[in-house]
Structure formats: structure tokens, C-alpha cells
Design a protein around this nucleic acid. Sequence first.
DNA 1: TTGGATGCAAAGGTTTTGCAGTAAT
DNA 2: ATTACTGCAAAACCTTTGCATCCAA
Lengths: 130, 130
Amino acid sequence: MAVNRRYTKQRELVLDALRSTRAHPTAEEIYMSLKDDHPEISLGTVYRNLNVLYEQGEIIRVEGNFPSVRFDGNAMLHYHFRCAACGELFDLELGYQDVIDTLANEISPHTINRHSIMFEGICRSCEQAN
Amino acid sequence: MAVNRRYTKQRELVLDALRSTRAHPTAEEIYMSLKDDHPEISLGTVYRNLNVLYEQGEIIRVEGNFPSVRFDGNAMLHYHFRCAACGELFDLELGYQDVIDTLANEISPHTINRHSIMFEGICRSCEQAN
DNA sequence: TTGGATGCAAAGGTTTTGCAGTAAT
DNA sequence: ATTACTGCAAAACCTTTGCATCCAA
């Protein structure tokens, strides 16, 4: 059965931190950004709250190969882009393409509900740096 | 400058192991599958060779959030499907959709070269198990 | 009052790395 | 002969977890 969650300052802090940035921070980065104003918060608590918020569907774990998991406070389905040169991660302003799920369901024996896309290329600033 | 790579038995073993399966094994799983016939091989060597083969573009690291990185001996661009129930990972027989890159390039300030897609849903056997 | 949440630190799991020896070129 | 590669083990790194305490409901 579901756990009865409680409101805590720390949970709110973690969620606010994620929602107030367009970056896709790691747990460690969120922890670092919080501990100046809230020295009592612990890294373990940040991890635990990220997991809770993820289970509740409030945040996203970006699908990709990163040394640490990267989180996204925008829970709406959207796509990501990673620069092959600098490794920076960006949101992509391309709307969710339902047709991709339709296509996939036509050819797959499995039941497909959703997808995530990671684009790769060279970001604007790396391009200009050449 | 590029390193001068040498042929080694261990590198070939790792590549062969990956190419001869449709699963998407972790480094540990590859190591386990090899060490019966080749007790001298070490896990560190498996990791190092996977990294070399990846840099050379011979193999793929599946984009996704798994406890350990999962590798794919099929270096052709293709999509993956993960079952939300059992966690199993499958190749998807949907051809690469160039149109997605075209769409993305139209709306993005960055230069997009390729993408990978992770589909999610319920696999056939989990569906039937209900 | 109850039990979910926290802080801290230790433990767990994955991947990398230093080193001395081995082997491909 | 040169130097990339290997095996081994230690280290590094990321994330989870046990425990005593705290605090939201």
C-alpha cells in the first residue's frame, strides 16, 4: 500500500531548486545549491527526496549516460539534447511526437506507452567557438 | 593524436561476446560469460576494452538509467524498449527516423546529428502474465 | 502518539586506475 | 625494442541504507 507522505521543508526545497532552474542538475549539484542557505540539509536527504518526487511523477530522471543521474523539474514529456563537445544538456523545444508511439506500436509485439529522445550534436556555443 | 591500438585476444573476446547476443549485457555480465572459457580475463580489462570499442564506434552504450551501463554490439542506429514491469531491455524493429532529426534541426539553435529513443511500456510476456 | 523524514556516517555497487609484468608490433 | 595491454587490487565515485532522533499529522 502507498506510504502516507508528509510535508517537509527539505522536500519542498529540493523541488523548488529543481523547478527554478533550466539546468539538469545532479543530486550533488542540488545539494550544493541548497546548503549555503540551509546548512543543515544532508546529501542523503536530497537523494531520498529526489527518489520520492520521482515516484510521485513530479520530476524526471533524464535518460542518458551520465556519471550521475540528472534531474529535470519539468515533468511534462519533452526531449533533450546533449552536446558531444562540451557535454552540456539542454531541453529541446520540439513538442512530444505521439506519432512515434503509434509507429512503434504498429511494429512491436509489446505495448508502448511513451518514449524519450536524446538528441546529440554540437551546441551553438561550441559551434561558434571554432 | 590517436593511440596506436593493438590487436588483443581480450578485445576480440569482448567484441565477439557482445555481437553474439541480442541481450544488452553489462560489463559484469560480459565478464561472467567469458571467464568460464577464459579464466585469466579480468573485469578491469573488460571495462577498458568496452571503453575502447565504444570510442571506436564499434559498440553502443544504451542511453538510459540503469544501475550499470548496458552495451549493444549492434552499432547501427536503432531504438530500444524497456519494460516498466520487469525492466527487460529490447531492440525495437523500427527503422531510424531521419525525419526526427530534420524536425529537431528546424526548431533548435544547435546542430543536431542524431538521436536515440528509449520506448517504455509493458512487454509481451508481462502483459500475458496478467 | 505515531510513523514518516532527517542527519550523519557507514556500507554497497559500479567503474576507473596505479603498477609491475606481458605481449603485439 | 617499444609501448599498448593485461591482471590484480586498491581507489574513486555515486547512491543507498541503518540508526537514533526529530517532527508533521
